[in-house]
Amino acid sequence: MQFSGTHRIEATPQEVWSFVTDPKGVSSCVPDVQSIETISPEQFKAVVKAGLGPVRGKFNFDIHWKELTEPSLARMSAQGKTPGSAVTMDTVMTLTPLDGGAATELSWTADVVVHGMIASVGARLMNGFVEKQTEQFFGCLSGKVKAV
């Protein structure tokens, strides 16, 4: 499944970059993150409690930064699993300065593949789920980046 979006954030690309590439910062905007563990600058682990329709579980995510070109391009790959279900997600994020650098356009695409129960039972709920999560995430992000 492909998802994408473009958002305007009232902060400089550098400010946005610092926030979204910091696992602790970014995870503060992901609903239901239970823990974050940094393994190396390119790798961290996250435990996320997620519910998609009747499928609920604690997903253990392995997340890798595949590319970090500061402050304009980041590629991330994540594998998550919970008993009976698995998720892989490849995300690309590009930051473009707006208004002479006072604001930032964040464009993202995510290629999500789900396996197991979450796919069998939850696939038809996925679009709504992703939309809601994205909305919450960027709402939070805009607030936090400005506040920093």
């Binding site: 593949v113 789900v114 396996h115 197991g116 129960m117 796919a119 069998s120 039972v121 696939a123």
Partner: peptide, 14 residues
């Protein structure tokens, strides 16, 4: 089945 081989009718809802 979806393109990843997931069974799309694994409950009596589907």
């Amino acid at each position: 089945y979806d393109e990843n081989g997931n069974n799309m009718a694994g409950t009596f809802m589907d």
